[in-house]
Amino acid sequence: MAVDTISAPAGGGFRRTLVERRDEQRRTRALVLGRSKVATVLAVVVLVLLAVTWLLPLAWAVDTSFKTEAQAQAVPLQWFPDGGFTLENYRTVLERGEVGRWMVNTLFIAGSVTILTVGVCALAGYGFARTRFRGKNLLFAGTVALIAVPGQILIVPLFRQMEAIGAVDTYQGVILPQLVAPVMVYIFSKFFAEVPQEIEDAARVDGAGHWRTFWSIVLPISRPIVSAVAIFVFIGAWNNFLWPFIVTNNPDLMTLPVGLSTVKNAYGTIYAQTMASAVIAALPLILLFMLFQRQIVKAVATTGLGGR
């Protein structure tokens, strides 16, 4: 599946005119729903209801974040509070500074995890797909078997290990255990295996070895899968909770999910302020999604099923 699915130009997608797209949508709609007006209306109603329901918690959180605590807890609930909105919560949260600090930490950690994981797994994927060496089949089978091991069962021994090498409460302690992604090796190897042999042969004739071929030929034409895996790993690392939570106690090193979960105890009843910090924490990835929706949707579709 890999090569075609991912690298096929999106039907000229980027340059497709809006009109063309609208026509296509109309055609699918007619095909799927039939020409029945009732069905179309029903579909619209249910879809809108679902979408509103899904956006409501976010909307209410954003709304609350612009209220004073008194407004937030006032009955009856008001979307537009008497006395108007306030930016006070955001000022307080930003002045406290920790959310910004956690965001920088998360960016650094998720960024490192992404770059290193993609590098390590792409290399291994190529090694398994396109090179020969003794014990390759056995190692590949072992890698596939490792996919089954849930990281959650490793928290105790991994923590002991980090203690032993003095990596508790360090960035490397958070990052290193997150680099092992056998499923990504599998996805890469499946993709690389389908890169046409002729392309590589041509490079060989020109005297390129494995490394040259990998860097200058295979990797550049594999950009779609690389970005898909990178996006997938990044979202996972950005939102990862359990391991960073276990290995960090120092608030200065915490990631957003971990830091926010500790704040709750301290300011449990200050809902308006909590919502402001939640909105700040939510913003980066929501923006990311708005900017790269096409790529993210594709990344989920291609890697979400673990290469199956």
Binding site: R29, V32, W54, W60, L256, P257, S261, K264, Q293
Partner: peptide, 28 residues
Amino acid sequence: YTGLPGQWVWRLAFFAPYMLPVAVVVQI
């Protein structure tokens, strides 16, 4: 999939929560 207009909005509405850190989801 029925291709109703506003694909972008529907996908945002349904997928955006997935992009949120768990702590944010719980707080909300």
